[in-house]
């Protein structure tokens, strides 16, 4: 079974390995070139590649498409499942081996990418957006969450393939579900803000690397106002902040301290892992039970 899995999926494995090597070399060269740079020069060097790095949240989707979607859909579409599932290896074992080995492989690939991005980020200490916690792109691409996003996409792809039983519709469903999941997590619910109750501080500025989630003004009487300060409703855009200052208001920040990074990583990883199992489990069960 291990040989069969390798033989059927070696193209994906090799292309992914090649991609990781390519990204690794690029990040290494780029990161080493930042050695000794400071200030504007460091920021300029970081910005020169940030556009490409910001595509990283889409990479797990590609893994879901090419690792997950064909896993069941290709067998069912070509009818080769009739051959594969009538051998001495039971269908349940066939599924368990494939899901286990390939799921492990994509997770490891995602983790490796995360390690490389984390290492690369350390070369840009202090640059805005080059922060693994407050920048949404970097948070999802580093640490354990990076690996689990890949596993999540793989589970979506596999489930879509098992349900639609055809490759092309499975691709479409995978893309739709993955983008919907991202959209729901980041736009509708902003789930990352909910992983822990934010700290509150009356602030000149937040502590370094903290992830600021909200801000507001506090009146001299200690009442917090969300939105515009009533005394300054008529002030112009340029004079607004001065007016707020004169009226005795202070700004208050809600933030997640930098040391919560790993706690948040594990929260997101756990969340996605549970959803992955919930998605892939029923499909695997259905495929294992359904008559050939």
């Amino acid at each position: 079974m291990v040989w069969l899995t390798w033989r059927q999926h070696r193209a994906q494995v090799l292309v992914t390995a090649g991609f990781l090597v390519l990204v690794g070399v690029l990040l290494l060269v780029h990161g080493l070139g930042a050695d000794g740079l400071t200030g504007d020069a460091l920021t300029a060097r970081f910005q020169s590649i940030y556009t490409y790095v910001s595509w990283l949240p889409a990479v797990p989707l590609v893994a879901g498409l090419f690792w997950g979607a064909p896993l069941l859909a290709r067998e069912l579409e070509r009818g080769t499942h009739r051959l594969a599932w009538t051998q001495s290896v039971t269908r349940r074992r066939w599924l368990a081996t494939k899901l286990g080995l390939l799921g492990l492989a994509v997770t490891v690939a995602g983790l490796l990418l995360g390690v490389m991005v984390s290492a690369w980020l350390t070369a840009f200490d202090g640059v805005r957006s080059a922060d693994r916690f407050s920048d949404p792109v970097m948070f999802g691409a580093t640490g354990v969450a990076g690996g689990v996003w890949w596993l999540f996409a793989f589970a979506i792809g596999t489930a879509a393939g098992g349900l639609t039983r055809r490759t092309l519709p499975a691709f479409a469903v995978t893309i739709a579900v993955f983008l919907t999941a991202m959209f729901a997590m980041f736009a509708v619910f902003q789930v990352r803000d909910l992983y822990a109750e934010p700290e509150r501080m009356l602030a000149e500025g937040p502590p370094a690397d903290a992830f600021v989630t909200d801000s507001a003004f506090v009146s001299p009487a200690g009442v917090e106002v969300s939105g515009d300060v009533p005394e300054c409703a008529t002030a112009g855009r340029d004079t607004y902040l001065d007016c707020v200052d004169e009226a005795g208001y202070r700004s208050v920040l809600y933030y997640q301290p930098a040391d919560r990074y790993w706690r948040f990583q594990w929260t997101e990883a756990g969340l996605l892992a549970v959803v992955s199992v919930l998605l892939a489990g029923p499909v695997a069960y259905r495929v294992a039970r359904r008559p050939v």
Partner: peptide, 13 residues
């Protein structure tokens, strides 16, 4: 105007 920043970044895809 309900597009999260992460999705704006992936528009070129």
């Amino acid at each position: 105007d309900a597009v999260p920043f992460v999705l704006v970044k992936t528009l070129p895809v």
